[in-house]
C-alpha cells in the first residue's frame, strides 16, 4: 500500500471536496486490512477531527456517528437500552478488542462486505444512513444500491422500539469470518429475519417475515421460506448445502428465542 498524502479534513465539506479531487483519494475509517488490499492512494482523508465518534439519542432514535469504533458501540449504555442491546450482538463477535478499538461502524457498513457481521446484526432493525452531501437512505437501500455511492457516511440512525433480537455467527474459531450469520428480531411485534455471509452480503427474508407477520406460527416453516427465498453458494469455507442447513436451524432457533 502506498499513500502520497495523509489529509486531516477540517469539515465534511472539506473532506468531500478532497474526495472529489481524485479517484485515487479515499476516506480512511479504521484502516484494518487496508494494506492487505494492496492499493495505492493519492490522499487518505482522515475524519477524526469532525466529531463523528459520538453516540447520541433522541426520543425516536439512536444516532451513531460513522467513526464510532465497534468497541464503543458495543459498550454504549445508549445502545444497551436498544432492544436490550441486540444491534450490538454481532459486533461482539468481530475479532478481538484490539481490533474493535480500531474498526468503525461506518467502515463496516460502507464496504458492504459479504462477510460482514455488523451489517447482518443491524439489518433487522430500522436503520437509516445519513450521508454528506445531505442524503438519507435505509441500510437495505444502501446494500442494494448499484455502484459506488459518491458521498461520506456521517451517521447511522437506529429507530427505537420494543422487542428483542438474536444473532448467531457460525464460525470455525473466534478469529474467523462467518460461515454464515443469522439475525432475527421482533421489532414492535413484527418479526424480522436476516441471513448474511451466504456468502453474499446480508439480506432480509421477506417471505419468512410475511408468513410470520400474518400469523404464521411454525418457525421451522418460516426458516424453510427464508432459505427458499435467499440464495446460497459454495465457497472455500463451506458448501451451499451446509449453509442452508445452518440457516434453517438458526432462523428457527432465533425465532423461538425472540418470541419468548
Amino acid at each position: 500500500m502506498k499513500v502520497n498524502e495523509y489529509y486531516r479534513a477540517s469539515s465534511l465539506e472539506d473532506a468531500y471536496q478532497k474526495l472529489q479531487a481524485s479517484p485515487k483519494n479515499a476516506i480512511v475509517a479504521g484502516g484494518l486490512w487496508m494494506k492487505k488490499m494492496g492499493q495505492s492512494y493519492d490522499s487518505l482523508i482522515d475524519l477524526s477531527k469532525l466529531g463523528l465518534d459520538k453516540i447520541s439519542e433522541t426520543k425516536d432514535e439512536v444516532i451513531v456517528g460513522s467513526m464510532v469504533s465497534q468497541r464503543d458501540f458495543e459498550d454504549s449504555k445508549i445502545v444497551s437500552f436498544l432492544f436490550a442491546g441486540a444491534p450490538a450482538f454481532a459486533v461482539r463477535e468481530v475479532m478481538g478488542v484490539n481490533f474493535r478499538n480500531l474498526a468503525t461502524i461506518g467502515g463496516s457498513i460502507m464496504g458492504r462486505y459479504p462477510f460482514s457481521d455488523v451489517i447482518t446484526g443491524l439489518l433487522p432493525y430500522d436503520v437509516t444512513l445519513e450521508f454528506y452531501p445531505a442524503q438519507k437512505m435505509s441500510l437495505e437501500e444502501y446494500l442494494n444500491y448499484k455502484g459506488k455511492l459518491n458521498a461520506i457516511l456521517v451517521a447511522i440512525h437506529i429507530k427505537k422500539g420494543e422487542g428483542k433480537g438474536f444473532f448467531k455467527k457460525v464460525k470455525t474459531t473466534a478469529l474467523d469470518f462467518p460461515i454464515v450469520n443469522i439475525a432475527v428480531a421482533k421489532v414492535n411485534k413484527e418479526y424480522r429475519v436476516v441471513v448474511g455471509a451466504r456468502p453474499m452480503v446480508a439480506a432480509r427474508s421477506y417471505k419468512a417475515m410475511e408468513y410470520l407477520n400474518n400469523g404464521g406460527k411454525d418457525f421451522a416453516k418460516a426458516a424453510e421460506l427464508a432459505v427458499e427465498e435467499l440464495s446460497f453458494m459454495d465457497n472455500k469455507d463451506a458448501s451451499k448445502e451446509y449453509r442452508v442447513d445452518l440457516a434453517k436451524v438458526y432462523v428457527r432457533r432465533g425465532l423461538e428465542e425472540v418470541s419468548k
Binding site: 492487505k36 470455525t172 474459531t173 473466534a174 478469529l175 474467523d176 472455500k236
Partner: peptide
C-alpha cells in the same frame, strides 16, 4: 494455497 493467513487458517484461540 488459500489458507495462507491467520484469517483463513484457524489456530485455536481462548474461546475454543
Amino acid at each position: 494455497l488459500l489458507s495462507n493467513s491467520f484469517l483463513s487458517y484457524h489456530i485455536p484461540t481462548h474461546k475454543e
